[in-house]
Design a protein around this nucleic acid. Structure first.
Lengths: 203, 203
DNA sequence: AATTTTAATAAACATTGTTCATTTTAGCAA
DNA sequence: TTGCTAAAATGAACAATGTTTATTAAAATT
């Protein structure tokens, strides 16, 4: 019964082709310009074919979102080997900033755009990826407190404060809301502010 | 020469009618559903007529954005009467949170959506409103430092830290990225986190 | 009353996401 | 090889979008 297996594999390969093509176009041209027609044209298939592999455009972009979060999680996990939780926290901030500034479009899709979250809502699925990465931060903060390296405070308050701060800065950079500062100064300013914030939280 | 004046006034009134109608529809139905055709239908004019008063859809929404910022600025300015700069800072945070949670769609347009900033870019104008409100925060922080109520640190770092933090939290709430927390818990959590952050910055 | 200037529109264009009836292709049995 | 079935792919259509342009209606001026 090798036929069914091959068919399944081919189905996956086709899905992958669509996904890769859509991702490329999204990174180069943005969400609006990545129309189903343009994707279909590039892979030399009819637009309707895409609907055999993805329910609609939102689900296609949820798939891209999902994959981006997997890479993000791996990226962030590389800090886990750092034993000192305070140093690990700082490193996680650095990794986060790195990811955001190197992949602004993906970051936008992951943390700002509506489309992928609406796809989740419509499919009644739950969003595992966001909370999973957030747990990395939360755990590190617990470790900091346990080691008495961080002032005692509510864990959710501490985690949300740091996360909100970095995301706020990053998203305003991506969405052009910090134009009162020169573009090149933003990342250094973010790093400096992160250092400052972590310092304030030190025991 | 009363004719020209009347014409000018009528022109303004028409502009205002479009603006008001668009604002209402935007608040009730969101950006996508507020199409130029739907606006035109509601005011009983042809879609093309709107183009006699606004260059395109982006400029129309920039006008809404602009007006929202004016209201926002007035709203925030009500804290200026508080003499103690640290108390004023806390009050400004409260006012900000109030505005964001009472007008999530307008907040989205002001601080998240791309359209209005692209309108500015295309018209080679500059964005006065964001920086103007930011100056309120910046000044208050300077006052805090001068009164030695706040730990000495770089002013831009301090201002951007607080602003980024509140915006990060708010925008993730609006764009459904904090679904690991119950919806009703988010605003209290934000207030608590803001208190905590300001406490950390106290001298 | 005739002319000029302004305002408004109808119709068209180029897109978009999405659906569905139809056709093509592939796999299998006689 | 020939027929049959099931799956895959498509062409054409639908409804909606933002936007432009040539044409018509209205108003103001002479």
């Amino acid at each position: 019964m090798g036929v069914l297996e091959r068919k399944e594999r081919e189905k996956q390969e086709m899905r992958e082709l669509i996904l890769q093509t859509a991702t490329c176009m999204f990174l180069e041209e943005g969400y609006e310009k990545t129309s189903l027609r343009n994707i279909a044209e590039k892979i030399e298939y009819s637009p309707a074919t895409i609907y055999l592999y993805f329910k609609d455009k939102k689900e296609l972009f949820y798939a891209i979102h999902e994959r981006a979060f997997e890479n993000f999680f791996v990226h962030m996990s590389s800090a886990e080997k750092i034993i000192n939780p305070m140093q690990r926290l700082r490193r996680m901030g650095e990794l986060y900033i790195e990811f955001a500034f190197q992949n602004p479009e993906l970051y936008d899709l992951m943390f700002i755009m509506r489309a992928p979250m609406e796809a989740i809502k419509e499919s009644r699925a739950e969003w595992g990826h966001g909370p999973r990465s957030f747990e990395l931060l939360r755990t590190t903060i617990i470790n900091c407190m346990e080691a008495k390296l961080m002032k005692p405070m509510d864990i959710d308050v501490a985690a949300l404060s740091i996360f909100s701060f970095i995301h706020g800065f990053t998203s305003m950079t991506i969405r052009d809301r910090l134009i009162m500062y020169p573009k090149e100064s933003l990342r250094p300013l973010l790093e400096k502010s992160l250092d400052n914030m972590i310092d304030l939280m030190k025991a």
